[in-house]
Design a protein around this nucleic acid. Structure first.
Length: 727
DNA sequence: GTATGAAAATTATAGACAGCATGTC
DNA sequence: CTATAATTTTCATAC
């Protein structure tokens, strides 16, 4: 179908043509006309088959009628990707915004925008804050709607959809899904049309490799020349035909060791290829320069034309690796599932090396068919590759026939609502009550009736579980009111707004009242014991050291080891707390990474989460009138930046983080005042500070001197912790 | 007693959202 | 088809 047959606004049609979209893909032709009539739609098709455009059309239709639309995605990185794509439509006069936890469009409010891209949690948070513009939404596009099946994050997505449908009964819902067994059931739940297809713009050949031979699902076979070992043979096969390879493995360690292992072969291969473009030194210097052994291994690999990609990399390292792969300066990439469902990074050849993955609950398990399909779906770059090839590696013939049967020809799993669990209900029941969506059991029931759970299973059971959650919230002072009517307390409302788990809030409350000077470790440990923080893993060999800390520093703790339900878990929490303590000490990052056996990405993630929880603790402390609020706030800011008490003054300058604060301090610039008295030339002699930054911090320091005193603020008014109600 | 090396036992294991106020080389 | 790689400990053997 041609774009002009859609009878679009001529301006919209012209913009599409400018992007090279003249003719729609079959998937789009089959769905866009209905979408443009305002119908609900669930589209379950492979990745990279032009799903997003279906959503964009719905958003553009709404915008051209003066209404708002929201595009909901599961990852921050995806939000940026969609935001960049949607910005192309700003020339039509529409305004596009992005809103995620770490990045917001400039401007005070989202009210002035026509299209808003947000993560599911951010969308939930916006709903909790009851922004007035929400009622102006006329369409939501839910990308990767099958993630409703995720135990941790699925409930949020499901609740956001249910809430928006409750709030705006006529809202148009576009659900974009991977191919799953029961996508029709999702469509029925949403009163939507249902479309599913296996069509892709690039042909995909899927096969199993065993004994130097690939067996394709279409019954073709191909022998692969064996070079040293199986995986390298497959990579070599693809690369020597001008392709790129993306190899999925099951652990970070495997990911790195595989990349390291093939460096020399890769270099040899690159030397034979004349038009191979090497990675320049500047690129290596600027963007991959991070402390730690992993970072130097990564640099080593990139120089050889291959790389690894997992969540232990910092975000800048990840973006850099992705960019180099897109530019074809990296020919072969080993990845954990980070790349399976993440941003769009296709390769000619996808190799699935491992089908088993360790699960802390179940031990070693086969990974879901859906996930393998997602990985395989990354094969074949539209417009560049003639076809894509996805190959699953099997140990032997028996395994190969199992793989063919179950993974290549078999059904994809069904998805199930996950909101029934305790954690999900205490979170979302609180938010429903706090936003006045549900003021009584009847209203709560009406709301729950709109969930996929109620559609798929049974509203009665859900209601019973919700009553339990409500009791929990009541006994812990977050919900009040007897009998039929209930409402959130001030405490409950704040917990909902801060977006923390009610269970975390209860821990924070204890920490706030029992925190004293000298109990920083205890505070940090308490933060690490909340369900919102996933602690770093404590190895067996860490136990001795950790138990010693418990013996010698029990005075610094707030939650004691003796009361712990799970000893190993307590040790993990304590280890995480100690890592954070070092982070806000002046320990070198490199030695922290080594001491705790973690990667730079983990350190940043834990610090970010801890800073958020400490900020929440500060807010709750203020709410209760606790005198600990200010001190907890200071620790929150230190964790955010990773600096010690004495570095705080210098680190409060914009552009100065951990490393530069230490560098400045050690060269005598110990305060903003001291910096204000210096010159740009002097500052530039400090490593890591260039001309631009020197000018910026100098002017900040000088300006800051004048406004310092004005910033002193008064104490908060003490309020009853438990029973103070919403007005 | 101790050096050596192979075999056996043990250890460890993917990912990533949110508050709030603004922006480095 | 409830895995596997890396690391540490154990143990047999030779000197």
């Amino acid at each position: 179908m041609l774009v002009e047959e859609l009878h679009l606004d001529p301006e919209v049609a012209r913009t599409l043509r400018e992007q090279g979209i003249e003719e729609l893909y079959p998937t789009q032709s089959a769905t866009v006309p209905s979408v443009l009539q305002g119908r609900n739609m669930v589209v379950a098709v492979p990745t990279a088959s032009g799903k997003s455009l279906i959503g964009y059309m719905a958003l553009l239709r709404a915008a051209s009628m003066g209404q708002k639309g929201m595009y909901i995605v599961p990852l921050r990185a995806l939000a940026s990707e969609k935001y960049e794509e949607l910005k192309a439509y700003e020339q039509l006069g529409f305004r596009v915004a992005i809103s995620t936890g770490d990045f917001d469009s400039r401007g005070d409010s989202l009210a002035g925008y026509d299209i808003i891209v947000a993560t599911s949690e951010k969308a939930d948070s916006l709903l909790r804050h009851s922004a007035a513009w929400i009622s102006k939404l006329s369409v939501i596009v839910v990308d990767e709607i099958h993630l409703i099946n995720e135990p941790d994050r699925g409930p949020t997505l499901e609740m956001v959809i249910a809430r928006l449908r409750k709030l705006i009964p006529n809202i148009q819902v576009i659900g974009l899904s991977a191919t799953i067994k029961n996508s029709a059931e999702i469509a029925e739940w949403l009163d939507a049309e249902h479309y599913t297809s296996e069509w892709r713009p690039v042909e995909l050949k899927q096969g199993v490799y065993a004994n130097s031979e690939i067996f394709f699902s279409n019954n073709e076979r191909r022998a692969v020349r064996k070079i040293e070992e199986d995986v390298w043979s497959l990579i070599h096969d693809s690369l020597s035909n001008g392709g790129q390879a993306l190899v999925f493995v099951n652990t970070r360690k495997n990911c790195e060791s595989a990349a390291m292992k093939y460096r020399s072969q890769m270099r040899k291969l690159l030397q034979e290829d004349e038009d191979a473009e090497a990675v320049s030194d500047e690129e290596l210097q600027d963007d991959l320069e991070e402390p730690g052994e992993m970072s130097s291994r990564l640099k080593d690999c990139v120089k050889s034309g291959l790389a690894f990609h997992h969540a232990g990399l910092t975000n800048s390292q990840r973006r850099m690796v992705e960019k180099l792969f897109k530019e074809r300066k990296i020919k072969c990439l080993f990845a954990t599932p980070t790349l399976a469902a993440g941003i769009n990074l296709p390769a000619r050849t996808v190799i699935v090396r491992d089908l088993y993955r360790y699960d802390s609950q179940l031990g070693s398990t086969l990974i879901p068919v859906m996930e393998v399909k997602q990985m395989c779906g990354r094969a074949g770059r539209p417009r560049y590759d003639p076809y894509g090839e996805a190959i699953i590696v099997a140990k032997n013939r028996e395994m190969a026939s199992f793989v063919l049967e179950e993974y290549l020809l078999g059904d994809v799993e069904s998805i199930r609502s996950q909101i029934g669990n305790e954690r999900s209900l205490r979170n979302h029941v609180l938010s429903a009550v706090a936003t006045r969506l549900a003021n009584s059991m009847g209203e709560l029931r009406d709301f729950l009736a709109l969930t996929f759970y109620a559609y798929q299973f049974d509203l009665e059971a859900l209601e019973d579980a919700a009553v339990d959650a409500l009791d929990y919230l009541r006994t812990n002072g977050m919900v009040t009111g007897e009998g039929e009517e209930f409402r959130a307390t001030l405490f409950g409302k704040r917990v909902s707004d801060l977006y923390i788990d009610p269970k975390s809030a209860i821990t924070l409350r204890k920490l706030i009242s029992e925190f004293r000077k000298g109990k920083e470790l205890g505070l940090l440990h308490g933060i690490c014991s909340t369900p919102d923080m996933i602690p770093i893993y404590a190895r067996n060999s860490d136990s001795e050291m950790l138990l010693e800390v418990i013996d010698n520093r029990s005075g610094e703790m707030i939650l004691s080891f003796d009361d712990a339900e799970d000893d190993m878990l307590y040790l993990s929490e304590l280890k995480t707390a100690m890592m954070l303590k070092d982070w806000i000490g002046e320990e070198r990052e490199e030695s922290i990474l080594k001491r705790y056996g973690i990667y730079p990405g983990d350190l940043r993630n834990k610090a970010e989460t801890a800073a958020w929880l400490l900020y929440s603790a500060e807010e709750l402390a203020e709410l209760s009138g606790s005198e600990n609020a200010a001190e907890i706030g200071r620790i929150a800011r230190r964790v955010e930046k990773g600096v010690s008490e004495r570095l705080m003054d210098v680190a409060s300058l914009r552009g100065i983080g951990r490393a530069r604060a230490i560098a400045l301090f050690s060269r005598g610039f110990r305060s903003r005042g001291r910096i204000a008295e210096s010159t740009e030339e002097e500052l530039m002699r400090v490593p890591g500070i260039g001309a631009q930054l020197a000018r910026s911090i100098l002017s900040q320091a000088r300006r800051g001197r004048r406004t310092q005193e004005a910033k002193e603020s008064g104490d908060s008014i003490p309020k009853d912790w438990f029973f103070d109600e919403n007005s």
